[in-house]
């Protein structure tokens, strides 16, 4: 089976500094990969590279069969990125935001309701402007805006941050459900217990390179 993510000695720059200094990583369909590492290790850059937002400076990089060295734009509509920022317009309601991003990605805006349902956004919150939501509710709204695109690869940067325990469980459940239908997830997290519970594999990054890569199932055994 072709890997969803295939990085071979991949280098990416943040300014002049090599945020990724030769990463080797191969991820199969349906895997849930936890990216660990200290701040500044290159986790966010790795996620943004896979989303086609950061150019490949050197090495090989293929995501969902697309060569990011030559065509990083076409991958963007096929992956979902949940970054630190919400990616939502504060003055629009949650429902308007989700419908807008669905239209922008060629998805059916009618699926917005289903996406908001999936992240357990209460109906009374859906018509509120985003700037009136708590940070946890905003995170759920961002997740709904990502889900409505129906991405084949989820790239989640600190998906548990700022969430209460119910919402954290929801994020984990969504990752597992997605994995069962072949959707792949790469997520960066400092929430050790939480991440260890859901991840199938752990990849440790330090100084822009992968220093450890092991299956969590083996560890559990």
């Amino acid at each position: 089976m072709d890997p969803v993510v295939h990085l071979n000695s991949t280098v990416a720059l943040a300014g002049r500094f090599p945020a990724l200094a030769g990463v080797d990583l191969s991820v199969q369909p349906g895997e849930i990969v936890w990216l660990r590492g200290p701040n500044g290790a290159g986790k966010t850059t790795l996620l943004r590279l896979c989303a086609g937002l950061v150019p490949v400076a050197k090495g090989e990089a293929r995501v969902l069969g697309v060569d990011l060295r030559t065509d990083r734009r076409s991958i963007r509509t096929r992956v979902g990125l949940l970054g630190h920022a919400s990616g939502l317009y504060d003055e629009l309601s949650v429902a308007e935001n989700v419908r807008f991003w669905a239209r922008c990605c060629g998805a059916d805006p009618h699926e917005a309701e289903a996406a908001m349902e999936r992240v357990d956004l209460a109906p009374r919150l859906r018509d509120l402007p985003v700037d009136r939501l708590s940070s946890g509710q905003r995170r759920r709204a961002s997740l709904a805006a990502m889900l409505v695109r129906r991405p084949r690869l989820w790239l989640l940067d600190e998906p548990h941050a700022g969430l209460d325990s119910d919402a954290r469980e929801l994020v984990d459940r969504l990752m597992v459900e997605a994995s069962e239908v072949g959707v792949t997830t790469l997520f960066a997290s400092h929430e050790l217990d939480r991440a260890a519970e859901v991840a199938l594999r752990q990849v440790v990054i330090a100084g822009g390179v992968v220093v450890e890569d092991r299956s969590m199932r083996e560890e559990a055994r």
Binding site: R76, T77, V79, A85, Y89, D90, W101, C104, G106
Partner: peptide
């Protein structure tokens, strides 16, 4: 409006 809270990245991620 387009600078706010990661919206520029979200726009880049679209098919527009």
């Amino acid at each position: 409006v387009e600078r706010a809270d990661g919206v520029t990245d979200a726009l880049r991620m679209t098919a527009l």
